[in-house]
Each structure stands twice: as structure tokens, then as C-alpha cells.
Amino acid sequence: MDRAPTIKDVAERAGVHAATASRALNPATRGMVNTRTANRVLEAARTLGYAPNSAARSLRTRTSSVAGVIIPDLRNPVFPPIVRGIEDELREAGYMALVGNTDGDPERERELVTAMRGRQTDGFILATSRRGDSVRTEGGVPVPTVLVNRRTDAGDIPSVTADNAAGVHVLVRHLAGLGHTRIGHVAGPRELSTGWERYRAFLDATTSLGLNPGGEPVEFAEAFTEAAGHAAAARLFAAHPDLTAVLAGNDLLALGCYSALADLGRSVPSDVSVTGFNDMPFVDRQRPALTTVRIPHYDIGREAARLLLERIGSPAAPAKRVVLPVELVSRDSTGPVAS
């Protein structure tokens, strides 16, 4: 073929009408086509080397094949693999990601959403939402949105998270198995679902095992950062000097616990055992290497992108909550209670 293949060429090779081929090639409408037919169209497009004219399709369908991805802090090691998973899944569907960073500022988030909508972004994947947020709309029409590593109390926005409760329970059982009965918690921000869910799971787990008699030693950090973890841990140990273990709401908070304990002249784990959550790339190289819970960051990103593509194709469908499994990674920061 001396010319560039057209949608009509793809349709003829797949044995379908051109309109069917067009729907199969557009991720936003692919769900309207039988799976076997859609796969036949996609294979025909690959064989012919067909490349859709995204600018023309944008004018025709009022879609851009661009998804906005808004992250609170790209310096946080949790988010790069999540964003990579999002980008890989979107690229395979003919979409691209437009990534913005808010530095945890709600006003900056609103500015980014407005700016991206002005560029005809088809939908959003947000890692910034707070527990009280609800369905986002523009002109009264819901904007296709998926939450990643976050979810709302109302559950009215599709979300993909790790199994926070299961992760906390396995950490508490691990510490209890080492003989710890006084376990503190440096919790993440209570307005974020990750912080709140892990805090609630900590209460459930310690209560069910009969730990922490006489009250729950908990301090909330202002952010999921090492500095905030240090400040919260200092308050925690000032109020509860008898603690023999501390479960931090994420790995950065756990590193803050390390430094707070060092300030007190106490060592990890001989004086106090410390656990994190997330298994960030560097925590196995800390001294001592951090016991934590591994979450599938990349898979969380891919699943969030899949949900968004579904949402763009079916905006009125019920909101899905996807929860991915986690696993304990036991390292050197936890040990038996000192005699």
C-alpha cells in the first residue's frame, strides 16, 4: 500500500463496518463492541500499521485521549511507580497522561484541574483527594475521575488502593508474635484515607489481640513525611515512654521514628521495634533495614488507568472499589522485646 492506511482499510481487513472499526479503535467506546470483534479490528490496525488521527478524532468526538494525573508530591517514592503504571496502561489504549504535582496544596489542585479541563482532558486520576470529597462535576456533569491510593468515605468515586487493613493487621500480629504488648502508632494525616484506614485498622488489630491495656498510644502526623514522623514520634514517646514497638503509617514516617528514637538515645530494634508501610525502594538499605508491608505500586497505577478508561466509556456506571493484596516484608528493624 503506497498510501497511509485509513479507517476504511482497517474495517475492510477486519470484515466490519467503518463505524464499528472506529468504535473499536477508540478506548472510550471500545466497550460498545463485542470483545472478539474489537480484537479483530485491533489486530487489523496493527497489521496495516494504522495510526489514528488523534486531532481529527478530538474534533469529531470532543475527546482528547489525554488523562490528567494529579499527585501530591512526586518526591515521595510511592508515586513514581504508580505514575509509570498509569502511563503504561494509558499508552496501550492510545491515551497519554498529563501529570501535575500539587505539593499537597488544595488550591494548587483546583488550579491544575481547571487548567487540564481547559485542554479537553477526558478524565482524571487523583492521588490527592481527601476523605470528605465527593463526585466532581463541571457544569453539573460528572467528570470521569478515579482515585489512586486514596478513596472517599462516601465511596462515590472509583478507587484503587492497597489492602491497608490487612497490612496493618499482619504488622500487629508480627509484633505481637515477638512479644510486644505495648505498641504505639505514628499515624498518617487523618483527613487522608490512607492515614485514617491504617489508624482504624491499628485500633482493631490491637484490641482484638488484647494489646495496649489502658489506652491506645497514637499520634497523628501532619503529613506523610520523615520530618512529620519525627515530630509525631517525639510526642508519642514523651507521652508513652514504656512503648517497646511503634507501627508507622508509612515508610517515611518510620524513618522519622528512627531519628526521634536516636535523639532519645534509644536504638532500633534492641530498645524499640519499628515498622513502616509501602516498602519504598530505599528502605531495605536503611540501618537497620525496615520491616514493612509491600504494596503493588505499579499494579495500582495500571488498575487505576483501566478504571478511568471504563469510566470514560460508561460515565454513569456504579463506582468500583478495587483493593489489591499486600505482603509482610520482615527485616532487621523488628525483634523480640528486650528482657
Rank of each mutant, 00 (worst) to 15 (best):
D271G: 10
P318Y: 11
R110I: 07
L175W: 02
E222W: 12
S58Y: 06
A93I: 07
T275D: 01
P77L: 05
L243Y: 03
F79Q: 01
A67C: 11
G31S: 09
D9P: 06
V160L: 06
A187Y: 01
R30L: 04
E327T: 15
A187R: 00
R200P: 02
P52Q: 11
C257K: 00
E197D: 10
G265Q: 12
T37Q: 09
G184V: 04
T128F: 09
E87W: 06
A239V: 11
T244V: 05
A239D: 15
R235T: 06
T275W: 00
V274L: 06
K320G: 03
D9E: 12
G229L: 02
G140I: 14
N212G: 08
V323G: 00
R40I: 07
K320H: 14
V170F: 07
N212H: 10
R321C: 02
G132S: 15
S330R: 04
P318G: 11
P325A: 10
T29F: 09
L324K: 05
A162G: 15
P288L: 03
V148A: 10
E12V: 13
A245W: 03
P269V: 12
V143R: 06
E111I: 08
T137Q: 13
E43R: 10
N39R: 15
G229P: 05
S193G: 08
D9Y: 13
P80V: 12
A221T: 02
L147R: 10
T194Q: 02
F124I: 14
S259W: 06
V41C: 08
A305P: 08
E219D: 12
I183S: 02
A319H: 04
